[in-house]
Simulated scan of single mutants.
Amino acid sequence: MVIGSSTRRLVGKQAESSLTGFGLLRRFAPTILVLLLFVVLWLVVASRTSPYVLPSPVSVFRQLVTLFVDGTVWTHVGATLYRVTAGFLLGTVLALLLGLVASSSPVLRLVLRDLSSILNATSVFVWIVLALIWFGLTDRAPIFTTLMITIPVLMSNVFEAIDSLDRRLLEMASVYRFTALDRFVHITFPSVIPYLFAGMRVAFALGLRVSVVAEIFGVSTGVGYMMNFARDTLRTDAVFAWALILITMMLLVDNIIFSPLLRWLTRWR
């Protein structure tokens, strides 16, 4: 009886695993089909076009393999991730500090909200040009650019969280004479965290794209620099290869870091 029961459980697990695998296949089958059709179309068009205008998928794949084999990809991906992460973390800390200020006064909240709107309306190229003037060809230029682009996104989410605070908790904090810091630590901060992580997900993806653009103008390493270098040397296959690497970076960060964190936070709430 024990053996039979164990066998049934094993068969049940195998069946469940098969169903899960089939479900995943059915979930991604339309996307895979579209991608395959896209590659076929790419092959057809590339065979009738100059390699400079549109390289074939085969040449792009070969270039990808070369970049990974010789280690070039790790150097430049690491440089880009360092810059975008530094600017992104600085933006997160500043957004939290501004949230502390905004939670202490409705007037300051209105002022900061207006400043956030002004920053959000400022073009990324304004910050790139200013960063080149102020910091020159250094890492600080893309870090500064990433910081200025991510701050308004994060601030908007922090302000949305503050607006949705439970007013009864705030009234209770006033009754017990909480200081502004205590009110932020015990009431505002726990409520802000889910909103902040949702904003961080968007801000990081935006910051990565902006940092790559800044690298084209201001540094000698990074994914943006390598894409521009490939363009200058008429290596369109390398441009496509680095573009695929950038897309993969975004997908990995989103699915490995931010998506699990957001699911955990949602479950905790």
Rank of each mutant, 00 (worst) to 15 (best):
M1H: 10
V2S: 09
S5A: 08
T7V: 06
Q14D: 00
A15P: 00
S18H: 12
L19N: 12
F22E: 01
L24S: 09
R26H: 03
P30M: 06
W42V: 06
A46Q: 08
P51H: 01
V53F: 13
P55T: 07
P55Y: 02
P57G: 08
V58L: 15
S59H: 14
V60S: 11
R62D: 12
R62C: 02
Q63V: 08
L64M: 11
V65Y: 12
G71V: 09
T75Q: 07
T75Y: 09
G78A: 06
L81W: 01
Y82M: 11
V84Y: 05
T85R: 13
A86L: 15
L90G: 15
G91D: 07
G91F: 10
V93S: 02
L97K: 00
L100Q: 00
S105N: 13
P106S: 15
L108P: 05
D114L: 13
D114K: 02
L119C: 04
L119T: 08
A121N: 12
T122H: 00
T122P: 02
S123R: 12
F125W: 13
I128S: 05
I128F: 07
A131Y: 04
L132D: 00
G136Q: 10
A141Q: 15
A141V: 09
I143L: 08
T150L: 05
I151F: 10
I151V: 15
V153E: 00
N157V: 06
E160T: 11
L165Y: 03
R167C: 01
A173F: 02
S174Y: 04
Y176W: 11
R177P: 00
T179Q: 02
T179F: 01
A180I: 01
L181R: 08
L181S: 06
L181P: 08
I193N: 03
P194T: 10
Y195R: 05
A198W: 01
M200I: 02
R201F: 07
V202Y: 02
A203P: 05
F204Y: 15
L206K: 00
V212T: 11
I216C: 03
I216Q: 12
I216F: 04
V223T: 06
N228W: 13
R231M: 09
T233N: 13
T233F: 11
A241S: 11
A241V: 09
A241C: 10
M250G: 14
L251V: 15
L252G: 04
L252D: 07
N255Y: 10
I256C: 10
F258P: 11
S259P: 00
L262N: 13
R263I: 03
W264V: 09
T266I: 00
W268I: 07
R269S: 13
R269G: 15
